[in-house]
Amino acid sequence: MADRRIPDAGVTLIEILAVLVIIGISAGVVTLALPGRAPSRGIAQEAELLQSRLNLAAERSLIAARYMRLDWGSDGYGFEVWDGERWEAAGDRKQIEFSLSDANGSRAGEVLITPDGISETGRVTLLRLGTGTSQRSVRFDGARASVSP
């Protein structure tokens, strides 16, 4: 009589591979379900954020009767306060994914925010976020900022 195989003698290679595939798929699903980087803001949201920050800086300048400025460059933008002798940072610099320029196309500069709410030049400052067709403009008249497409 031929030797018969005992049913619980071990596992086959196919069974081991099936278990490995199930573990791999489960690990992939868990990895995708974990939170990653925060989603990047769109250009419209970034323009509204800049508008809100300019309006807040204008209010702070008025309340504290101190000069402030928006300083921007290729590394982002930030607000500074004049302490009577020098400019001091008023918070962290904001990194942005879009290009920021003024009406002349300059990618670095500053906008003075005065306590009386009148722009330094007497004109409206126009800041552009983005390039090409994906662009928003933030207008600042010294007291109030607004977004336009």
Rank of each mutant, 00 (worst) to 15 (best):
A143V: 08
Q51W: 11
A38T: 08
E88W: 10
V29N: 06
T121V: 08
V11R: 07
D8M: 12
G105H: 01
L129W: 04
Q135P: 03
R139I: 11
T114W: 14
A64L: 15
E48K: 12
D71F: 13
A89T: 14
L56M: 05
I43D: 01
G73H: 04
K94Y: 07
W72Q: 00
Y77L: 02
R53N: 02
D116F: 13
D116C: 14
S26V: 15
A33N: 05
R128C: 01
G117H: 04
M68K: 04
S52N: 11
R5S: 09
P35R: 04
T114L: 15
E120C: 07
F98W: 08
R136N: 07
D71L: 14
L100G: 00
T121K: 06
G117I: 06
T131G: 13
S26T: 13
D8K: 09
E48N: 10
A44P: 03
Y77I: 01
L129Y: 05
G132Y: 03
S146T: 12
E85V: 12
R4M: 11
A2K: 15
D75F: 09
T31C: 09
V30W: 10
V111G: 01
R53L: 09
D92R: 11
R123Y: 04
D8E: 13
Q135R: 14
L129H: 03
L34V: 10
R69C: 05
P7K: 08
D3E: 11
R93N: 02
E48R: 15
P115W: 09
G78W: 02
R5L: 07
S99V: 13
S40K: 13
I63S: 08
L20H: 06
A65V: 11
I16Q: 08
I14G: 11
I96T: 08
Q45L: 13
G130D: 00
L32K: 06
A18I: 12
I22K: 12
L112P: 10
L49F: 14
G42T: 07
I43M: 10
E48V: 10
L70A: 05
S134I: 15
L62G: 11
D92H: 09
R136H: 14
L127D: 00
V111Y: 01
I63E: 13
M1A: 13
E46S: 12
D92W: 03
V29I: 14
G42P: 00
G91V: 03
G132W: 04
G105N: 01
A47M: 07
A103W: 01
N55S: 09
L56N: 05
G24P: 05
V111L: 03
E97A: 15
D75N: 11
G105Y: 00
R144V: 04
V29P: 02
I16D: 05
A145M: 10
L17V: 08
T31W: 13
S61K: 02
P149T: 12
D92Q: 08
L127C: 00
L129S: 00
A18E: 09
A65N: 13
G28E: 02
L100N: 01
D83G: 09
L129C: 06
G42R: 06
I25L: 13
A64I: 10
V30G: 07
V81F: 11
